[in-house]
Nucleic acid binder design. Sequence first.
DNA 1: TACCAGGTGGAGT
DNA 2: ACTCCACATGGT
Length: 302
Amino acid sequence: MVQAELSPRWTEWHPLRGAGAPGEGVLEEMLDGGQAFRWHRQDGTWTGQWGPHLARLRRGPADTVEWSAPQGFLEPTRAALAQYLDLERDPRKLADALPWRSDPHLARCLEAFPGLRLLRQPFGETLLCFLCSATKQIVQIKQMVARLAERVGRPWGAEAPGRHCLPSWEAIAAATEPALRACGLGFRARHIHRTAQFLAAHPGWLEAAAAAPYPQARDRLCELPGVGEKVADCVLLFGAGRLEAFPVDVWILRAMARRYGLDGWKPAQVAQFGRAHFGERAGLAQQYLFAWERKFGRVGGS
DNA sequence: TACCAGGTGGAGT
DNA sequence: ACTCCACATGGT
């Protein structure tokens, strides 16, 4: 499917500066654990794209992470990575403010994924990716957005031949729905195309939603076709750094039923419980619970 | 082969 | 307001 996987010439590796390095296996959870869908591993090296950016990441010596950029893009990539990975903030300090002292399961989750970060992805791209996410596995979502980039997005540049950015909302609005459907989007193609049409007809709408306070931002996003409470929360959490957002998917529903006794609770109730129980950074707790349940909770009820 | 996947929207009660 | 179900597609 991907024909000539020509790779760019890369700069040398640089140590990632910033507080709180991820523990063993945690980098993988950050890049491939359902927050982002544009990172691919080959031989222990992760290559990823976001917005106009392209970078590689790998584990370095002594619990560090190293990065490299396409030749000629060292400084812009350095700045973009700092923003994307939220390097200014220490993830362990953020997590320490969660109520793990009174919540043994949460404590276990924090211990299992030390240094886990929430990404700060481009808002519009996050919306696009999570519009693709409905009842799809992460591997399939990655495949869908890869095809969207390849067929609808613009080429990254001469330095990285064969590589494409995700399409802008304008580009998606200009595409036909059958063309989107041909990317394997299924019934999501209609939602995505109608959302694109709406955004094209309402310049500045998305930026306003991104800037609004959490409850208003969430309500506004839910006006878009294909966006419900879960997708809106994912977009705000992973695309706008709104840690109050508490996305409830099948894994969180399962986790809250098994670990907190919330059997039979509906998503909206679980979301309310989550925000009340975990506090103003509930979304961070959510990501730990999600990661733990997927890694350790696949079999066995309690 | 069945069942499930980071759900949503619409119809019927 | 709540319950049920169609919606497309591919992994396990």
